[in-house]
Nucleic acid binder design. Structure first.
Lengths: 103, 103
DNA sequence: CCGCACGATAACACGTGTGTTATCGCCGGA
DNA sequence: TCCGGCGATAACACACGTGTTATCGTGCGG
């Protein structure tokens, strides 16, 4: 075992303070919610039903409903699919203590 | 890998024109490769072994090796974990025809 | 009242990214 | 030469996001 494989006291201290699991969970749902809002507002401004939007994206209506529910974090491949199908951009900022969707 | 094994620009161009799926695949692996480079260069500048970095991130050495191989598209939760553990930022641009990691 | 579009939800299968253990080959120092 | 860490890889289990079908309730137009 080498010294470089040991955690420094500062690192351990940071872990105690930040409670990474709880924060990760908060960010996860917040991000999902932001993506949901993008989909919802697109559908509103384009006057589309969930079924119509699903057709436009090559998906089924329940998939859209699930996205708009914002209950789980969309994958990057799903974001890519949305960007293509809706002709919009997503800009994601991943920082040491947040996961955000930028305008 | 030898130069002769690489596709020419013309061949890649044809793929984009003829097969949208091929482009999605290219973006996926290119993105994975970019993330891999970030991890590799961090580890190089900080003089860490894969095992040491794994420990710093709460992972095992093979997980780091897999990340650096760049064969899978990292999930957003993995990116968050890297950002937290390495104290770096990732900025992801998702547009209708590309998935890029910005500097 | 009836029918139909709409949106939400449940249930299930499936792909893929991740976590982990166990090795393997390689190389550098004692 | 032997032994140590290092990095790659295989093999497996598992979590999670996704695709899909089948409903169910609601509300509106006929």
């Amino acid at each position: 075992m080498k010294l470089s494989e040991l955690k420094s006291a500062a690192e351990v201290h940071d872990e105690v303070l930040t409670s990474p699991e709880a924060k990760a969970e908060r960010d996860r749902t917040a991000f999902a919610h932001d993506v949901a809002l993008r989909v919802i507002s697109y559908r509103a401004t384009h006057q589309l039903s969930q079924s119509a939007l699903a057709r436009q994206l090559g998906m089924k209506q329940p998939a859209i409903a699930r996205l708009e529910a914002g209950d789980h974090e969309p994958s990057l491949s799903t974001l890519s699919r949305l960007a293509r199908g809706l002709n919009i951009d997503f800009h994601v900022d991943v920082t040491p203590n947040s996961l955000e969707l930028r305008a």
